[in-house]
Simulated scan of single mutants.
Amino acid sequence: METAPDPRWDLADLVRQRMGELGLSFRKLAEVAVDPASGSAGPLWSRGTLENLTKREPVKAPSAPQLRALAVGLQLPLRAIQDAAAAQWFGVETIYDDDVDPETRLLVRRYQSMSPEDRRRLQIIAETYDPSRP
């Protein structure tokens, strides 16, 4: 029987770190975290939810508009926010191998515990099944 993995705090830690780098308060981040796809909707994060998130308290998984808003507020690429959220809530690590092939993207559970040989095998599998390759 597989045991439950330890909780992940990827997004919580990223938000806390970036807030420190930018000198943002929870209130200020809540104000500037607006989804660029629907700017008229206003802020999508409350100060309290952001505070709970960074303190590693339970919060609901964010929606796509909330992730876009957080990317804007933290001045980070959306990809970084999405990857951190996927790791925290779903245990999925997104692996980009820009050295070998910048177009290959893998979503893998427990990637960090794999051997380098197993990681390379996954890379080869992904490249083999890429429909965009000639």
Results as ranks from 00 to 15, higher is better:
Ser25Leu: 04
Ala126Cys: 06
Ser38His: 15
Val32Ser: 04
Val59Gln: 00
Glu117Asn: 08
Pro116Thr: 11
Leu106Phe: 06
Leu76Met: 12
Lys55Asn: 09
Glu127Gln: 13
Ala126Ile: 11
Phe26Lys: 02
Gln66Pro: 00
Phe90Asp: 09
Pro134Gln: 11
Pro65Met: 09
Pro77Gly: 05
Val34Phe: 03
Tyr96Val: 14
Ser46Arg: 06
Ala87Glu: 09
Ser63Phe: 07
Trp89Lys: 00
Ala61Glu: 14
Arg110Asp: 15
Leu24His: 04
Ala41Arg: 09
Ile125Met: 11
Phe26Asp: 05
Pro134Arg: 12
Ala85Ser: 06
Gln123Ile: 09
Pro65Asn: 03
Trp9Glu: 12
Arg133Asp: 09
Asp118Thr: 11
Thr94Phe: 11
Thr54Gly: 01
Asp99Trp: 07
Leu67Arg: 08
Leu53Ser: 01
Arg16Thr: 05
Glu51Ala: 13
Thr104Tyr: 07
Ala64Tyr: 15
Ala61Tyr: 06
Tyr96Gly: 11
Arg47Phe: 10
Arg109Thr: 14
Pro65Gln: 05
Val92Leu: 13
Pro131Asn: 05
Thr49Phe: 10
Gly73Asp: 01
Arg56Phe: 09
Glu51Pro: 09
Val100Arg: 08
Tyr129Asp: 06
Ala84Leu: 07
Pro134Thr: 11
Pro43Ser: 04
Pro77Ser: 03
Ala4His: 13
Val92Asp: 04
Pro131Met: 05
Ser40Tyr: 14
Arg18Val: 03
Tyr111Ile: 08
Leu67Thr: 05
Arg8Ser: 13
Arg18His: 03
Glu51His: 15
Leu70Ile: 02
Thr54Pro: 00
Phe26Gly: 05
Arg119His: 10
Leu24Gly: 00
Ala30Glu: 00
Pro5Gly: 11
Pro43Trp: 07
Ala33Met: 00
Leu44Val: 01
Asp35Ser: 01
Leu14Gln: 02
Pro102Cys: 02
Ile124Lys: 06
Leu106Arg: 10
Gln88Asp: 02
Lys28Glu: 10
Ser38Trp: 15
Ala126Lys: 09
Ala87Gly: 10
Leu70Met: 08
Ile124Asn: 10
Ile81Arg: 03
Glu93Met: 13
Pro65Gly: 00
Gly42Ala: 04
